[in-house]
Simulated assay, not measured.
Amino acid sequence: MGKTSAVAARSATVRLVDEQGASGKVRQIFDDIKKTKNLDHVPNFWRVLATSPAHLELIWGQLKALMHPEATGRTSKLDAKTREIIALAVSATNGCSYCVNSHTTALRKQGVDSETLGEVLAIVALFNGTNSLADGYQIEPDVLPPVE
Results as ranks from 00 to 15, higher is better:
residue 10 R to D: 04
residue 8 A to I: 14
residue 90 V to H: 07
residue 117 L to G: 00
residue 50 A to T: 14
residue 49 L to H: 06
residue 39 L to T: 00
residue 45 F to L: 10
residue 87 A to F: 11
residue 33 I to R: 11
residue 59 I to D: 08
residue 42 V to M: 13
residue 25 K to T: 15
residue 99 C to T: 01
residue 43 P to D: 12
residue 32 D to R: 11
residue 52 S to V: 09
residue 130 T to I: 03
residue 89 A to H: 03
residue 60 W to I: 00
residue 144 L to W: 05
residue 56 L to Y: 12
residue 17 V to N: 06
residue 20 Q to C: 02
residue 99 C to I: 03
residue 98 Y to R: 10
residue 43 P to V: 03
residue 21 G to L: 13
residue 128 N to W: 00
residue 20 Q to K: 14
residue 104 T to F: 07
residue 139 I to M: 14
residue 28 Q to C: 07
residue 4 T to M: 08
residue 145 P to M: 13
residue 102 S to N: 09
residue 6 A to T: 12
residue 49 L to Q: 04
residue 82 T to Q: 07
residue 140 E to I: 03
residue 134 A to N: 09
residue 29 I to W: 08
residue 6 A to F: 15
residue 116 T to K: 10
residue 84 E to I: 00
residue 129 G to M: 06
residue 117 L to V: 00
residue 51 T to E: 02
residue 71 A to M: 09
residue 72 T to M: 14
residue 52 S to L: 07
residue 126 L to K: 03
residue 52 S to A: 10
residue 11 S to P: 07
residue 11 S to G: 01
residue 93 T to A: 12
residue 109 K to N: 11
residue 121 L to P: 06
residue 13 T to C: 08
residue 80 A to K: 08
residue 66 L to T: 12
residue 40 D to N: 12
residue 131 N to Q: 11
residue 113 D to L: 09
residue 135 D to R: 12
residue 66 L to D: 15
residue 146 P to G: 15
residue 114 S to E: 12
residue 138 Q to F: 13
residue 67 M to Y: 01
residue 123 I to T: 11
residue 27 R to Y: 00
residue 104 T to Y: 10
residue 72 T to L: 13
residue 27 R to L: 02
residue 60 W to M: 02
residue 83 R to H: 04
residue 134 A to S: 13
residue 77 K to V: 11
residue 36 T to S: 15
residue 38 N to Y: 00
residue 106 A to Q: 13
residue 130 T to Y: 12
residue 97 S to Y: 05
residue 66 L to F: 11
residue 80 A to D: 09
residue 121 L to I: 01
residue 13 T to W: 01
residue 26 V to A: 04
residue 131 N to W: 12
residue 21 G to R: 14
residue 110 Q to H: 03
residue 100 V to E: 06
residue 121 L to E: 01
residue 13 T to H: 09
residue 6 A to K: 14
residue 17 V to T: 15
residue 131 N to E: 09
